[in-house]
Simulated scan of single mutants.
Amino acid sequence: MATPPSTDPRAILRSGLPDCYLTPDDIADMFRVPKETVYQWRKKRLGPPGFRVGKHLRYDPADVQRWKQERMAAEPAV
Rank of each mutant, 00 (worst) to 15 (best):
M1K: 11
M1F: 12
A2N: 03
A2Q: 11
T3R: 14
S6V: 14
S6D: 10
T7A: 10
T7C: 11
T7Y: 07
T7W: 06
D8W: 05
P9M: 12
R10Y: 07
R10F: 10
A11D: 12
A11V: 15
I12K: 02
I12W: 05
I12S: 03
L13S: 01
S15V: 04
S15L: 08
G16S: 07
G16P: 02
L17A: 02
D19Y: 01
D19L: 13
C20A: 15
C20K: 06
C20H: 15
C20G: 12
C20T: 06
C20S: 15
Y21S: 05
Y21K: 05
L22P: 01
L22C: 08
T23S: 15
T23G: 11
T23R: 03
P24G: 06
A28E: 03
A28Y: 02
D29H: 00
M30E: 08
M30W: 03
F31I: 12
F31T: 09
V33R: 06
V33H: 08
P34T: 06
P34V: 15
K35Y: 12
K35S: 10
T37N: 10
V38H: 00
V38F: 02
V38N: 03
Y39H: 04
Y39K: 07
Y39M: 14
W41G: 13
K43D: 05
K44C: 12
R45C: 04
L46H: 00
L46D: 10
P48E: 03
G50S: 09
G50V: 07
R52L: 09
V53T: 08
G54L: 14
G54C: 14
G54T: 01
G54H: 04
K55E: 10
K55T: 13
H56I: 06
H56C: 07
H56Q: 09
H56T: 03
L57D: 05
R58Y: 04
R58I: 15
D60W: 01
D60H: 10
A62H: 02
A62P: 00
A62E: 04
D63G: 11
V64N: 00
V64Q: 05
V64Y: 02
R66F: 01
R66H: 04
K68W: 11
K68H: 09
Q69E: 09
Q69L: 13
E70C: 13
E70K: 02
R71W: 00
R71T: 08
M72T: 09
M72Y: 04
A73C: 08
A74K: 06
A74P: 05
A74N: 07
E75H: 07
E75A: 15
E75C: 09
P76L: 15
P76F: 09
P76A: 14
A77M: 14
A77P: 02
V78H: 01
V78F: 02
